[in-house]
């Protein structure tokens, strides 16, 4: 196993489309819920322990070899608003393109053929991690970290927040990322014996509500 592959996969410059998405930060900034580093940190902590945990567990399960189509259905059931399902599939398709060029693998080809419009992004990322020789916990780390680095980077652009402060927020949340990644990997491990229901389904009502509202904004900087 090459740990360096995790750095490649988790790099914010990995060309899989993430730069155009704010992870809910754009509507939160507009509503005044994010206005500085402290409020960014609270927002990120909430997203990490809800949407981040669910996504990390899906990725860990895919990296562990669970059927990606079952995981894709599980992701649908855990994503109640169409705006976020569409975003997850669009980003999944972009991740698939990058992953197939980076770590070619028949398993990626098979999922791409079965979901030509894109599978949910964490499922694709988990499968890409598996193709790169990474462990389920690695995949969980990549997704958990991405669930907060996306909003933090977007907030730097949206609020002209000091980038040092934004990066410090990510560092403050390191212990939370550790916790969520471990929870996610542990849940993924239980899927073999307990079935898909072992995966977490933590919901964040405001992320769902505001994502669907944001999708209808006529003018916005970020796709989501």
């Amino acid at each position: 196993m090459s740990r360096a592959a995790l750095l490649v996969l988790a790099d914010g410059r990995f060309p899989a489309g993430g730069h155009a998405h704010s992870g809910g930060a754009e509507p939160a900034v507009a509503a005044g819920r994010i206005k500085d580093a402290a409020t960014l940190e609270r927002f990120c902590r909430g997203r990490l322990h809800t949407a981040g945990l669910v996504a990390a567990a899906l990725a860990a399960a895919a990296a562990a070899g669970c059927d990606p189509l079952l995981l894709d259905d599980a992701a649908d059931a855990r994503t109640p608003v169409p705006a976020l399902r569409q975003v997850a599939r669009r980003l999944g398709r972009q991740m698939m393109r990058a992953a197939r060029a980076t770590w070619p693998d028949p398993a990626l080809d098979a999922l791409a053929a079965a979901r030509p419009r894109g599978a949910h992004q964490p499922v694709v990322l988990g499968l890409a991690a598996r193709s790169a020789g990474l462990a389920p916990l690695d995949a969980a780390y990549a997704v958990a970290y991405e669930s907060i680095s996306g909003p933090a980077t977007a907030t730097v652009r949206l609020l002209s927040l000091d980038p040092f402060d934004a990066t410090a927020v990510l560092a403050h949340l390191a212990a939370d990322v550790d916790l969520v990644a471990r929870q996610a990997a542990a849940a993924a491990e239980r899927v073999a014996t307990e079935g898909i229901d072992a995966l977490p389904a933590a919901s964040a009502p405001l992320l769902d509500i505001t994502a669907q509202a944001h999708a209808a904004w006529p003018v916005r900087l970020f796709a989501s």
């Binding site: 060309p15 489309g17 730069h19 155009a20 652009r157 970020f222």
Partner: peptide, 21 residues
């Protein structure tokens, strides 16, 4: 229309996945 997250140059040069799609 491709949405670029306020960075068109990223979408046409560094991460072209959305444009290819």
């Amino acid at each position: 229309a491709v949405e670029t997250g306020a960075c068109p140059h990223t979408a046409i040069r560094d991460d072209i996945s959305a444009n290819l799609e």
